[in-house]
Amino acid sequence: MHISRAQIREAADMIQKQSSIQPRIGLILGSGLGVLAEEIQDPVTIPYGQIPHFPISTVEGHAGQLVIGTLENQPVVVMQGRFHLYEGHELASVTFPIRVMKELGVDTILVTNAAGGVNESFEPGDLMIIRDHINLMFRNPLIGPNDPELGPRFPDMSQAYDAELRQLAHRVAEEQGIKVQEGVYAGVLGPSYETPAEIRMIRKVGGDAVGMSTVPEVIVARHAGIRVLGISCISNMAAGILPQPLSHEEVMETAERVKEKFIGLVRGILRQL
């Protein structure tokens, strides 16, 4: 699927007919964090299935709808449920919502995810501000012809995760008395969890956390000139660190446990954006 501006426009048009709010901030809510969308005021909810050219989300824990409204006095558009490569979606589908957000006027995206802790000083339940990422997915959503109206042929990625936004996140965390980590997110394909040998490799090459999302969305956001703040919920220690197998249940349980802390942090950040 090759994305055309016409398709982006169609999707944006449909959304703008449903809500007069012009969102400035986009939120992509990862595993188990979708409930933040319920705190949005005057929400307009649009199931992905109704939006032209949007894919459908299939993972447990991801609802599958766009919510537009106000949160902490900011006009926001929230993805409640995201798309992953491992579901079989094409890259263009996974990243299409970012294109549409840009078309709607979004200039800043807060992307969240659940990730495995690779850095052994991390603990399940930690929140990690993403400083940078390593693309280990062997995929790039920008492969193909480039439309200069959407972004440059060769986007710079030297400061993909905005330094000022990271500083803001740290400040808010401190104000709230929350300890946060900072580190490098390694994006992998999944859906099988990594082997211990793969985790050792990721640690060796500088990864602090590992997950199956975010990287494609951030690449497209940067292509589109959108500022990015990324926060990972360390939902479990990655394979080989503790002598126990990994499970999606554990990921969901930790995300549930950490929810309030995470929501509090996000709201605090939104308040000061």
């Binding site: 394979a239 126990q244 990994l246 499970s247 990921v251």
Partner: peptide
């Protein structure tokens, strides 16, 4: 499973 563990494949 959707997300198989590979700790001791």
């Amino acid at each position: 499973l959707r997300f198989p563990d590979m700790s001791t494949a």
